[in-house]
């Protein structure tokens, strides 16, 4: 892998109308690192993750995402895998169709590989609307990781997952964090243990 990603955030802040969600956030993460974002509810964890994913823009401050030293200005989504509870899947599409919608590669056997890896093999042809919330979470994780992207953003990755699901998740994160850049936003200490550095939004804001 020659692709080295670098995320540099300096003095990010986000306001929503008159109220401010967070301010003065600075950090930098590189490929091969795992970065956690923690903080109490309402401190802007999800918003920060969405800003990194390019779904929202910071009100002030600068966020630069670089690939091999060159800033990515276009089609950021090609480099990103993203999973968040705010991201609903297509209810009327089957598990396989949802995964293949997210899949951008050529080799279609990878889709089946990931589906069985996360234990959804026997639910492959069910529509997403009849899945339980835990299975939906697994499907979200599949769509985030299926392209083996350089940047993986996970917002509350372990929510609704059972022990077996968490096992798979942790194993996968351990595997990808050697080469990719992983950012996890969560309050679960078990998930945060995967990363060796991060920020606490509660401390930032005070």
């Amino acid at each position: 892998m020659h692709e080295r990603y670098l995320i540099e955030a300096s003095n990010l802040s986000r306001r929503f109308g008159k109220s401010r969600i967070f301010r003065g956030i600075s950090f930098s993460v590189e490929s091969g690192e795992c970065f956690f974002i923690t903080g109490p509810n309402g401190s802007g964890k999800s918003t920060l993750v969405q800003i990194i994913a390019g779904l929202q823009k910071p009100s002030e401050g600068k966020l630069a995402i670089k690939l091999n030293g060159k800033e990515i200005l276009e089609s950021l989504w090609r480099h990103i895998g993203f999973a968040s509870p705010a991201m609903n899947l297509y209810e009327r599409l089957t598990v396989y169709e949802n995964a293949s919608f997210a899949f951008r590669g050529k080799d279609k056997s990878l889709i089946n590989h990931y589906i069985s890896l996360f234990g959804l093999g026997k639910h492959k042809d069910k529509e997403a609307r009849i899945l339980s919330s835990g299975l939906r979470q697994r499907l979200r994780l599949i769509t985030a990781m299926i392209n083996s992207p350089g940047i993986v953003l996970l917002d509350e990755p372990g929510s609704n997952l059972d022990v077996e699901g968490k096992d798979v998740l942790f194993r996968e994160i351990e595997k990808i964090k050697k080469e990719s850049l992983v950012i996890i936003a969560s309050n679960d200490p078990e998930e945060l243990k995967l990363c060796h550095k991060g920020i606490d939004l509660a401390k930032q804001n005070s």
């Binding site: 089609s75 989504w77 990103i80 993203f82 705010a86 991201m87 609903n88």
Partner: peptide, 12 residues
């Protein structure tokens, strides 16, 4: 249905 994030994270 809240699928717009899923849509925009995977397409231009």
């Amino acid at each position: 249905e809240g699928t717009s994030i899923f849509l925009s994270i995977h397409s231009e």
